[in-house]
Write a protein that binds this DNA or RNA. Structure first.
Lengths: 239, 239
DNA sequence: GCACCGAAGTATCAAATGTTAGCGCGCTTT
DNA sequence: AAAGCGCGCTAACATTTGATACTTCGGTGC
């Protein structure tokens, strides 16, 4: 059940059986959300953090003019709001982009982990740090990459992250989002998003149909994206 | 000497004297950097993390075409690379934008804090979480705000952050960056950066000369920026 | 005092991106 | 089967943003 969490945390450093047991005690209370539902509401003060077991979720903010911007995409094995444990107040919302199965981690139990399990605490801390590293990469993509390169970079990142939790199928992965939602990831208008997708398709490196992205030329896709996975910390070493 | 660190961490929850002593033991080895110098090199694996005592620093990435994007600005009291303690490898650089005085925190000592001082560990963790919250706000600003609003938001954020560590002077603060450097913050060309600055100046809410920004109309600046400081977690509560 | 230089600011034109509107397709609902 | 609807896609035009080149200004060194 927590396999994707173990795969996610375990890619950075080894997880002992005791730590897996602690995580098993921590995570309790499965919930289901339909596509489009809020998993966590902006402005709330949750008493627990949420882990994605299945589905795709996203953090977002909405501006006064109605504009929406996603600030991250969350795949199985990701905590969508682990930081709420210390940040306390949600300054943004988390939405289910596809039907999501999630499981909860009580903040009181998280606190006791920080009191008693320093190594596991560091791994959870690390998880939030990688979140930050991904944010930085997104900032660079938004500021200085061409839009096509930005999209290519997003696909590289998603493919690699999904591969870690065994949610890829050969060179394909499921991406249950509309072009309008993707536009809210890249910060573009829907029309221009469509242009950018067309351009990437026409370059022959990806195919995208039926909510499934297939990477046709992994080498060239990485090249277009200038993708360097260092920021995902995918090496196993003592932390 | 560590006053700005205490002000920074202490704004979120109370710091005990013991914890201040621990921090005093942790931070050792002052360094100076001239404007333009790298404080931390991209690709390095530092054995310590760096706290800004004085000056302005920034994280950045450089792309193949030479384009540079800053991903954060660091003011006194900020760790520029606390995450390197667990991330291990720097996937980006940190540069001094003005002459910087910094002090170092050995990763081995940080580790022992995580083993022995859970509350202080949570506060340090929190510090990196706020980093992430700022990143998310920047992503929203880059994706969905107008450029003038983005700049206004940046000024709001800087003013508030500098106020916490007592580096404001009335409604003014020192901002030792060129327009070209600011363009690398917002992800704009220098020419357009100049247009955006002119627009904000002409709206009469700020003045900016001699590397000093003065907020002429705080109310209206916040309005233009749609600034909501929730993401900076500036409330003192048990963490 | 004068030459030099980096940064700010401006003008002009080109390219990227947004807005509005509309079409067609496949799916669901009735 | 027909109507309705979300979504992908396109066209035409407006606006924003970038590239290049040039001027101005203030400081700095000779």
């Amino acid at each position: 059940m927590l396999e994707s969490l173990f795969l996610n945390l375990g890619q950075h450093d080894s997880l002992s059986d005791d730590e897996k047991t602690l995580l098993g005690d921590l995570m309790a209370g499965e919930r289901h959300f339909a596509a489009g539902q809020d998993i966590v509401a902006s402005g709330s003060r949750p008493a627990y953090s949420t882990l994605v077991l299945d589905g795709l979720a996203a953090r977002y903010k909405v501006l006064a003019d109605g504009g929406r911007q996603f600030t991250s995409l969350q795949v199985p094995g990701d905590f969508v709001d682990l930081y709420a444990f210390l940040l306390k107040t949600m300054d943004h919302g988390v939405i289910a982009l596809s039907p999501c199965r999630v499981i909860l981690a009580d903040h009181s139990k998280l606190r006791s982990i920080t009191e008693r399990a320093p190594h596991l605490t560091r791994l959870l801390w690390l998880d939030t740090l990688i979140d930050g590293a991904i944010h930085r990469e997104w900032i660079v993509a938004m500021g200085r990459r061409s839009k096509v390169s930005h999209l290519a970079h997003l696909f590289c990142e998603l493919f690699v992250r999904l591969e870690v939790v065994k949610r890829t199928n050969g060179m394909s992965f499921h991406l249950p989002v509309s072009q309008a939602e993707l536009a809210d990831v890249l910060g573009l208008s829907v029309v221009h998003m469509n242009r950018v997708i067309s351009a990437l398709r026409n370059s022959g490196v990806i195919a995208w149909a039926n909510h499934t992205v297939t990477i046709l030329d992994w080498q060239k896709l990485q090249q277009i994206a200038e993708f360097d996975p260092t920021y995902l910390s995918m090496t196993r070493e003592p932390r």
